[in-house]
Amino acid sequence: MLRIENLHAEVAGKPILRGVNLTVMPGEVHAIMGPNGSGKSTLAYLIAGRPGYTITAGSITYNGKDLLALAPEERAGEGVFLAFQYPVEIPGVNNVYMLKAAVNGIRKYRGEPEMGAVEFLNLVKSKTKAIGLKDDLLNRPVNQGFSGGEKKRNEIFQMSVLEPRLGVLDETDSGLDIDALKVVADGVNRLRSPDRSFVVVTHYQRLLDYIVPDQVHVLAHGRIVRSGPRELALELEARGYDWLTADAA
């Protein structure tokens, strides 16, 4: 599904990623952990195509396609979804209008007919109920005036409507209380299927109690320094990152 090879990237001449390798097979959930500043969010942004980074070496291949050659909306069309760590507030743009534009933007990219208003509203209704998103948030401007938890919930809600093939969750757990965390995890777990994969970026292993990963990777100083089964996360919880990151510096 996703193959990242020897990825090097920098911002304004400052290297952030220094040779990342990662392979995600269909149906797998991979957790990326690591200390602050290790490059976790950069990796998530690069998969989604955020401008402002210079890729100096390496590649990202997604279902056989060169992902780096695609515009962000084309990647979304291919089924990539990024749940933002800091969802952006967009004044004056209605949340549900935006989502309809997204659904139909993706359909158009895939050469499918646009979704009608009634069908769309039914879809939205069923998903809001599942995620427990308050109805009034739907008609507010995108993320504006949302609490931290509401923003994260809104990301998961959008993901459940757009049904991506690759979901990238960038610290979706940060700032969430335990109830909200469960809602987010339920949203992801419901979407888990043999042909859908997830990359879950997180600082704490807490989220991984609810979204059980197939593999855990530790990113430090722009490289993956350790990969292992889910137990690696527990070990990190107990021992911190220092024992792994010292060599990578």
Binding site: A76, V88, M98
Partner: peptide
Amino acid sequence: ALFYLQARGIPR
């Protein structure tokens, strides 16, 4: 904001 919308599949 533009990147956020694009990442949701909305053309530039």
